[in-house]
């Protein structure tokens, strides 16, 4: 089997290489962005041929894929916003289907079935297609392929941007990465002001936890940077322990926490949906409970 790979970053591309090897793809060609030293990194990870582009531009990558996609079984990417957009456009233009957010694959009756989380995180769909098909692998689900021996054939392509970008701003990344943290504390609308989040930060420092939030806190109120937002369209987390504080438990949010080993929910509303997704349900006011929990931890440390 042969695959053409592209991704918005090398890290994501190397994760997809691992996935492609798992499902038995022998020959991988990849689009990469940058100079020749970049191509060498792909070669060391077993990529046979690299199509090198200077800029990462959605329109340009769609055009390139449409012109070079011949004889491949898969168009493979990571299902971040760039990956899902380019995969959607290129596959539709060429005339094949796309399966996004893939978390695993299995063989059944000679077909490869791709699993993806669907229906707001409540179900797993097993999907298949005759080749070719576009596959978007869920980011940070697979280890990056390690470098070893190997060299890739390089073809440099020149393409021009179609959409003029007036301004580009990097989003600030702050604090420990949520998706790698062992303990995560999530803050919701139960907090009455931005200053009150200190209760969560203090507890986080005691526990060595990372702090995140539900969508409204990050996206609407801007009390936390956007990369702190936990949920289906934000960050998916998989910590040993997740403590949801003052979070009602909208499906958007719950879909991003289901891989947590243990979930604790603190909420004043006994009917908050979060309690249905929690192991330990604490129907208390966070303004009383968080200080009590912090005090209890300190007592144990001291004693």
């Amino acid at each position: 089997m042969r695959a053409l790979l592209f991704a918005s970053s090398d890290e994501l591309a190397f994760e997809v290489i691992t996935f492609l090897r798992n499902i038995g793809v022998e020959e991988i060609h990849s689009i990469a962005f940058g100079d020749k030293s970049k191509a060498a990194e792909y070669g060391k990870r077993g990529v046979k041929k690299v199509f090198l582009l200077r800029d990462m531009d959605e329109d340009a990558v769609v055009d390139v894929i449409s012109s070079i996609f011949k004889g491949y079984d898969y168009l493979a990417t990571a299902s971040d916003k760039f990956g899902r957009t380019v995969a959607a456009r290129a596959s539709q233009r060429i005339g094949f289907g796309a399966i996004m957010d893939v978390i695993s694959a299995e063989r059944r009756d000679g077909k490869v079935l791709f699993s993806r989380v669907t229906l707001g995180g409540k179900a797993i769909a097993l999907e298949y297609s005759d080749p070719p098909v576009a596959i978007g692998v869920k980011p940070r689900k697979f280890e990056q392929a390690k470098p070893s021996e190997g060299e890739a054939e390089v073809e440099e392509l020149s393409v021009s941007r179609k959409t003029k970008v007036l301004e580009r701003r990097e989003k600030k990344i702050s604090g420990a990465a949520l998706d790698k943290a062992r303990i995560v504390i999530g803050c919701g609308m139960g907090f009455k002001s931005k200053e009150d989040l200190k209760l969560a930060y203090d507890l986080a420092e005691l526990m060595g936890a990372a702090v995140g939030s539900s969508r409204p806190l990050a996206a609407d109120l801007k009390w936390m940077p956007e990369e702190r937002w936990i949920g289906m369209s934000g960050v998916s987390i998989k910590p040993d322990l997740y403590i949801a504080v003052g979070i009602s438990g909208q499906q958007q949010h719950v879909a991003g926490i289901t891989d947590s080993k243990v979930i604790v929910a603190v909420n004043t509303d006994p009917n908050a949906p979060i309690f249905k997704s929690a192991d330990y349900c604490i129907n208390q006011d966070l303004y009383e409970f968080l200080p009590a929990l912090a005090a209890a931890i300190r007592r144990r440390r001291g004693g």
Partner: peptide
């Protein structure tokens, strides 16, 4: 269509849903 669904299975999300009651420090 191009992509077909072989199966949709419920995602196991069995949580214990244990209620912890008492004063804040007892619950902590």
């Amino acid at each position: 269509g191009r992509v077909r669904v072989a199966e949709i299975r419920p995602r196991r999300m069995e949580r214990k849903m244990v209620k912890l009651e008492g004063s804040p420090s007892e619950v902590a």
